[in-house]
Design a protein around this nucleic acid. Sequence first.
DNA 1: CGACTTTGACCGGCGC
DNA 2: GCGCCGGTCAAAGTCG
Length: 314
Amino acid sequence: MDFSSWVNTSLNLNINPPRFHEQVIKKEVENNFNSLGMRMSSSKEEPTTAMVEELKRVSAENKKLTEMLTEMCESYNTLRSNLVDYMRKNPDKDQHNSSSKRRKSESSNNNNSNAMVVYNGNSESSSTDEESCKKQREEIIKAKISRVYVRTQGSDRSLIVKDGYQWRKYGQKVTRDNPSPRAYFKCSFAPTCPVKKKVQRSVEDQSILVATYEGEHNHPHPSKMEATSGPSHCVTLNSAFPNSSAPTVTLNLTTSKKSIINDSKNLNTNIVTPQVPQNLVEQMANSLTKDPNFRAALVAAISRGALHKKQVEN
DNA sequence: CGACTTTGACCGGCGC
DNA sequence: GCGCCGGTCAAAGTCG
């Protein structure tokens, strides 16, 4: 189980469009090296060799860090799979609170790392084609459920989770298992968008908002259409989240407290533990080292820095 | 005045 | 069949 493969923590480093930018960076690096080469031939060689040494050192360090990160991720994945195995072998311990059946089915949905396939497998063969199609469609929508945890200010009692989309509240209800009300939202950015969102405060920690997303957006993310759409406090790292069943990692930037992260494969993990951000760091670092855009940007930055150093020296 | 929120009523699924 | 519960509707209220 490769954790990094299902948690996309790659950062969009403002590289638009990526291919074009890659080419620009490549050219820029080439130009930088060419200009360096020109100067190399014309001026003293010592700073150049020092620079080459520095570059070698940096790349060696980078390699070492990459290896360390890979190692860390591997051990994390091993631990994680052990935990999953343990949970599977001791399912009763996981369900110590015997709440309603709905909850059970919900958690079973959430535990499915490949929920769509499982749902399709469950569809009844006795029903008519039309019914089964309808059922499957509903099940697919149900399968596209993700949950995001957002820590809010203690004084903030609103049930608003800023994720960049436009939501219209259409209901609020106090549920049995949680004294705080649950708010129901529909995506109002596109009239035909089927996505719904439920927001409720966590039972364990009232300062944590639990936003449950159902379905997928049939329109682009508003923030992509309108780059600066006001102060959004909640950052969804996986920008593709709404249009895919891929999990989401969300950072809450509203407070200086430890960020709350979520991965939708772990929807029944209600307890937000302090060590989780550590994992996030690992995932992000791992993703960054694998991200060609980041690498290209890094190379460009290093070469630019080297060029600048050279110019200062001259 | 239009867009959005609030809130009580209503509906459907599920268990007993 | 009845009651409970979560989800949705829609009229009324609020706000800019």
